[in-house]
Design a protein around this nucleic acid. Structure first.
Lengths: 254, 254
DNA sequence: CGTTTGATTGACACGAGTCAACACCAGTGG
DNA sequence: CCACTGGTGTTGACTCGTGTCAATCAAACG
C-alpha cells in the first residue's frame, strides 16, 4: 500500500488526534492492496456480516437504505479518506447498504487487524473513535437540515459541508472539488424530488454562488453560500482539543 | 447507587453483549448518586466540555440543536437507561445540547471512570461501543423518516420505536409507556408544525392504533401501527451476534 | 377566579411533488 | 453516417401535503 493513497485518511485523523510517525506506519501497514470498483456497485448490502472494513481511497460512495416503496434515502457521503463500516465489528450485521456513486478505489482492513489497531495502540484507538464520532455528528447535522431547513438551505449546506470535508483531507482545490453525480443522487440525499433539486441548483447558480459542471462543483461565493445554507463548521470538530490550531482551522474559519 | 435504578441500562446492554456479574458490579460502582432535575432544564449546552457523563435513570430527556431562526430540532430521545454524552470524552466539545423533557433522575460517571471502564474491562468496552453504535443506527433511521416518510408514517414510526426501546430496558407495560410531553415537542422531533402533529395524532387515533392521554402512550394495534410507520426493528440490533436468542428477541419479534 | 399553556379546528397560503413534454448527449448498431 | 436508444437535465402546469394564522376550547395553576 503506497503512502500517497492513504494520505487523505491520515490528514483527516491528524485533525482530531496527533499521530506519531510509527502510529501512521502501523495504520498504513494494516491496509491491503486496493481494488477498483465501478460506479453503481454495492460494497456491502443490508444484512451482510463482512469480515473486513472498507476504506475509500478515490471516488465517491454512499451509505443508503432502500424503503419498502422502492425509494432510496442516502445517509452519508463517503469521500476519499472515509472508513465505511467500522461499526460492523461490534454490531455484527449491517443495517444499511454501502454503494459506489462513481468508480472507486477501495482498500480493506481485516477485522482482526482493526481489533489489533484498537487494542494495541492508544493513539490509533482514539483516532478511530474520533473519526466515528465525527461521522455521527455529521449525521445529526443532516437531521437538522431535513427537519428544519428549506430545500435551498439544505442544498447550500451540503455543498458547504463537502467543501470543508474535502479540505480536511487535502483533496479540495482552493474552491472546488470533484462531484461526479446526477441530480437524482442529490435528490435521494436531500430527501426531495429530482425536479426540485433542479430548481434549487438553478437558484444557487442564479445567485452566483456555485458552478456545477463536468462532474465538479465550484464554490464562487463561499461566505454567501455558508449564509444561505445556515452552515457553521463547528460540528465537524476541526479544532484540536489539547494542541495549537493548525492553519487548516483558520483557513476554514466560520 | 442502588441496583434497581440502573436496571434499565443493564437490561439494554445485555442485549448487545453478555455481561458477567462482576462486570455489572464494576459498572454500577462507577455510577454516582443521582440528582433530580426539573423538566425543561439543560443538562449540557452546546459548547460545553463536561468532565462527566450523564445517565438517565427516570424521566425523559432529549438531544437538540437550536437554529439561527430560533426553531429547534430534537435529535434523539433519551429514556431511562440511556447514556447522554459518552462521545464528549473524545470529541471534547458538545456540538448540541441535552435537555430534560420531564422531571428526570440523572446519575453521573466521572470521565476518568469512563476511561477506566473502557480500558480495563473488555466486555464493558464492547458494551459501551455497542450502545453508542445503536444510538447511531437510530439516528440513521430517523434520517430516513425525515427524508422519505410521510408525516403520518413518521409519527407512527416514532411511537413504534419507543415501544420497542422501552421494552428493551424492561420499562414498558405490555403495550404502553410513559410519554409526558406536549405536541410541540413532538413537532420539534418530527420536523413538522405543531398543528400538523395534532392532525397526525387524530388520524392515528381515528384508525384505532393508539391512545395518548395522561402522559402515557398506549399502542392499541401494534401490527397495524408498525405497518403504517413502515417500522421494522432490525436497526435496533436486538438479536445477539454470537449467542442464543433470549426471550426478549422473540417477544419483540419480526 | 383570571391567567396561562396546550389542544383543537378551520381557512388559506405556499413549498414541494407529480406528470408530461422536450432538449441534449453518449452509446450503439445498422 | 445516421437512426435509435436510454439516461439526464430542464421547463411548465397542476396537485397536494404541510405550514401559517387565528379563533376557540380545555385544563392546569397561582
Amino acid at each position: 500500500m503506497d503512502h500517497h493513497s492513504v494520505q487523505p485518511l491520515i490528514n483527516k485523523l491528524q485533525i482530531g488526534v496527533r499521530l506519531s510517525g510509527p502510529d501512521v506506519t502501523v495504520l498504513v501497514g494494516a491496509i491491503t492492496t486496493p481494488a477498483l470498483i465501478p460506479a453503481g456497485m454495492d460494497l456491502i448490502e443490508e444484512g451482510d456480516r463482512p469480515d473486513r472494513v472498507h476504506l475509500i481511497l478515490e471516488g465517491l460512495a454512499c451509505r443508503y437504505k432502500l424503503l419498502s416503496d422502492g425509494t432510496r434515502q442516502i445517509l452519508a457521503w463517503l469521500i476519499p479518506g472515509d472508513i465505511c463500516d467500522l461499526h460492523v465489528a461490534v454490531l455484527g450485521e449491517m443495517d444499511h447498504a454501502i454503494g459506489t456513486l462513481s468508480p472507486c478505489r477501495v482498500a480493506y482492513i481485516a477485522r482482526a487487524d482493526v481489533e489489533g489497531l484498537i487494542h494495541c495502540n492508544a493513539a490509533l484507538n482514539r483516532a478511530l473513535w474520533w473519526n466515528t464520532l465525527v461521522d455521527e455528528a455529521i449525521l445529526r447535522e443532516w437531521l437538522v437540515g431535513m427537519g428544519r431547513r428549506s430545500a435551498l438551505a439544505q442544498t447550500a449546506h451540503l455543498f458547504s459541508e463537502l467543501l470543508v470535508r474535502f479540505r480536511m483531507t487535502g483533496d479540495a482545490e482552493r474552491d472546488s472539488y470533484p462531484l461526479p453525480i446526477t441530480q437524482i443522487t442529490l435528490a435521494d440525499t436531500l430527501g426531495i424530488s429530482p425536479v426540485h433539486v433542479n430548481r434549487m441548483l438553478q437558484s444557487l447558480r442564479n445567485k452566483g454562488l456555485i458552478r456545477f459542471e463536468h462532474g465538479a462543483l465550484t464554490v464562487l461565493d463561499e461566505a454567501e453560500l455558508f449564509k444561505v445554507g445556515d452552515f457553521s463548521p463547528r460540528y465537524l470538530h476541526l479544532i484540536k482539543r489539547d494542541s495549537n490550531h493548525d492553519k487548516l482551522d483558520s483557513k476554514i474559519g466560520d
